[in-house]
Amino acid sequence: MAKKMASQGTPATAALTAAGVPFVVHPYAHDPSAPSYGLEAAEVLGIDPARVFKTLMVEVEGRLAVGVVPVSGSLDLKAVAGALGAKKASMADPKAAERRTGYVLGGISPLGQRQPSPTVLDESALGFETIFVSGGRRGLDIEVAPADLVRLTRAVTAAIGSAKD
C-alpha cells in the first residue's frame, strides 16, 4: 500500500504516518444529501459495503467508547457493551462525540481522535486483507489492514455488528 498524500492530511492520516503503518487514502466527492455517509463511500469508491466500516460513538456506564462496524449493517449496542465488560450501551450524544474526537459527524475516524476512547472493532473486519474507515472528514476514507487498526486503537474485536433489516 502507498503512504498518504500530503494534501489529504488529517489527524487520522498523521497517526498512521507517525506509526509507520501503510495505508491508502481514498478521497471522493461527498454529497451532503446522502442518507448514509458510509454507504455513499462504498458506492462511490466501488467497494463492497462489508469492507467499509463506520465509526460510532457510544456511551457505556458514563464513559464514551467507539464501535466500528460495517456500513452494510448496524451496531448491536448490547454486544458492544458486553465486549467492554458492561451490561448496556447507548448511542453517544453527537456533540459529545464531536468534542471527544475532534471530528464532525460523518467524518469520525477511529484513528487520530483528540481523546482516544476504548474501541471495539467488529470481528468481520479480520476476514479482509484491508478495510476502509473514515479518514477524518466527510469524503475521505482510509484503506488499512485490520490488524494495524486494532494495534493503533488498542481495539478489542467482537461480533458487534448486525445485519440491517
Results as ranks from 00 to 15, higher is better:
M1I: 03
M1S: 15
A2G: 08
K3Q: 13
K3P: 03
K3A: 15
A12G: 09
A12N: 04
T13M: 07
A15G: 04
A15C: 01
A18V: 05
A19F: 07
G20E: 00
G20P: 07
H26Y: 05
H26F: 01
A29I: 03
D31M: 01
P32M: 09
L39D: 05
L39P: 12
E40L: 07
E40I: 06
E43C: 14
E43M: 11
V44P: 02
D48M: 02
A50C: 03
K54E: 02
K54P: 01
K54C: 05
L56S: 06
V58P: 00
E59V: 10
V60F: 04
V60I: 08
V66C: 14
V69G: 02
V69S: 05
S74L: 06
L75E: 12
D76K: 13
L77R: 13
V80M: 08
V80H: 08
L84M: 10
K87F: 14
K88D: 14
K88P: 06
S90D: 14
K95S: 15
A97V: 01
R99G: 01
T101F: 05
G102T: 08
S109Q: 10
L111Q: 00
G112Y: 01
G112A: 05
Q113H: 05
Q115K: 13
Q115A: 06
D122I: 05
D122C: 08
S124A: 14
S124F: 05
G127R: 07
G127V: 00
F128H: 10
V133Q: 04
V133I: 09
R138Y: 04
R138D: 00
I142C: 15
A145Y: 02
P146W: 15
P146H: 15
A147H: 09
D148N: 11
T153R: 03
R154M: 09
A159K: 15
I160C: 11
G161C: 06
G161K: 06
S162R: 12
A163M: 05
A163V: 06
K164R: 13
K164Y: 05
D165K: 05
